[in-house]
Amino acid sequence: MEAFKTLVSPAIPLPIEHIDTDQIIPARFLKATDKKGFGDNLFRDWRYDKNDQPNTEFVLNNDQYNGQILVAGTNFGCGSSREHAAWALTGYGFKVIVSSFFADIFKGNALNNGLLPVQVSEDFLQALLKIINDNPKAQLRVDVLAQTIEVSGTELRANFDIDPYKKTCLINGYDDIDYLVSKRAAITAFEAKQE
């Protein structure tokens, strides 16, 4: 996993609540046996019409907006456990998702792929959406070490929570497999006790 300390980027607003993983990546695209290419089908059925033409009303097709930060409505990532949702978001180029609430499994999947879920208050989210709406080029700064998110040139700033262990992983690019493999002896000893 790539190390992640800070990010400065404009953001893309998607103020829809309860965005489920079927919207992020529809099931018909889950037939791949590797992790590549899912970004092409991110939000497929919102992004393209049934004739595969870009839906001009959808924010990812709006030239005004770009960047590596997605700002979405509450309960982002609910539904299925498919990690393909995280691969689709990172594949598209996102590094941070900001929302007022994240579904559990999605949050873990995101962190396991170096995608940072930044949970903010509903008030902060609405204020942030307003700023992006008024100025699509507004620069956001996300600092993993300091656990802060702020909008350059404004007063808008907040702290966010992150599990200390996951923070260490993110900053250093570690993942859980390395840690768990290093614990195989303890795990084997645990098994022996159960017999």
């Binding site: 456990s81 990690e83 393909h84 995280a86 499994i105 873990g108 999947n109 396991n112 497999i177 768990l180």
Partner: peptide, 9 residues
Amino acid sequence: GIGTSQVAQ
């Protein structure tokens, strides 16, 4: 339920 990274773990 778990994600695929956790399946690998």
